[in-house]
């Protein structure tokens, strides 16, 4: 049995309280590198809180959250390490969105630029990713001038352009039609095949094809 020490995401006995109400009481799950996990749960079950815990925006009251083998409790004390940890994560939906003052192309190239790649290479990667995600026709538009599905695929393109290790997709298909949702699922499955770790959070069932594991959030815990 894998002990989860090398897992990309590790939640060990996490407790989190918000407004006096316990959100998680002993939440534990591991997401191994290169695997695709769907975590489903009803509204207010704490899905976005999980994303915030992974991004190091908040800390658990007890227990441990680790990303890429590093505990957020440790990382949060060093700005540099926190930034490095966040640079590994590609976010789609939920708290992740595009920057309003940048075009789609600039948004897609942003993570690569932040990672320190020269502008020329970041732009080249961004153009390739835009082509792959069928965004070429909107690259010079601003996020408020494109459709919702284009915004979300741009977020996935941004993650792919920057060669992220981990994609956290928080309800990425909410509000999309069936065809657009299927396209997002198809792209996520392709990323999984490319070896990228994926955590998919949803209030529904999640994609049928692609994920390696499904867990359900119930009473503050993750159950199969």
């Amino acid at each position: 049995m894998h002990d989860g020490k090398d897992a990309m995401i590790r939640f060990d006995d996490v407790e989190f309280v918000y407004g006096g109400q316990p959100i998680f009481s002993g939440l534990s799950f591991h997401l191994e590198r290169g695997k695709y996990l769907v975590l489903s749960g009803p509204t207010r079950s704490g899905k976005t809180t999980i994303v915030q815990l992974i991004a190091g925006l908040i800390l658990p009251a007890s227990g441990e959250v680790a990303v890429g083998g590093e505990s957020t409790h440790t990382v949060i004390h060093s700005r540099k390490r926190l930034r490095e940890m966040r640079r590994r994560i590609g976010g789609v939906g939920g708290i992740y969105s595009l920057l309003t003052d940048r075009t789609i192309l600039e948004n897609v190239g942003l993570s690569s630029e932040i990672a320190g790649l020269p502008s020329r290479i970041a732009r080249k990667n961004a153009l390739e990713a835009c082509a792959k995600y069928r965004l070429t026709h909107v690259i010079s538009r601003y996020p408020d001038r494109v459709s919702e599905v284009e915004r979300r695929t741009a977020l996935m393109a941004r993650a792919e352009a920057a060669r992220k290790d981990l994609i956290v997709a928080d309800s990425p298909t909410d509000g999309l039609d069936q065809q657009s949702a299927a396209y997002i699922h198809e792209r996520l499955a392709a990323l999984r095949l490319a070896g990228i770790t994926i955590l998919y959070l949803t209030s529904g069932e999640g994609p049928e094809n692609g994920p390696d594991e499904y867990l359900r959030l119930s009473r503050g815990r993750a159950e199969p």
Partner: peptide, 10 residues
């Protein structure tokens, strides 16, 4: 909002 996104991206 954009500052928050930039922080999230590291």
């Amino acid at each position: 909002r954009d500052f928050f996104q930039l922080k999230l991206l590291g």
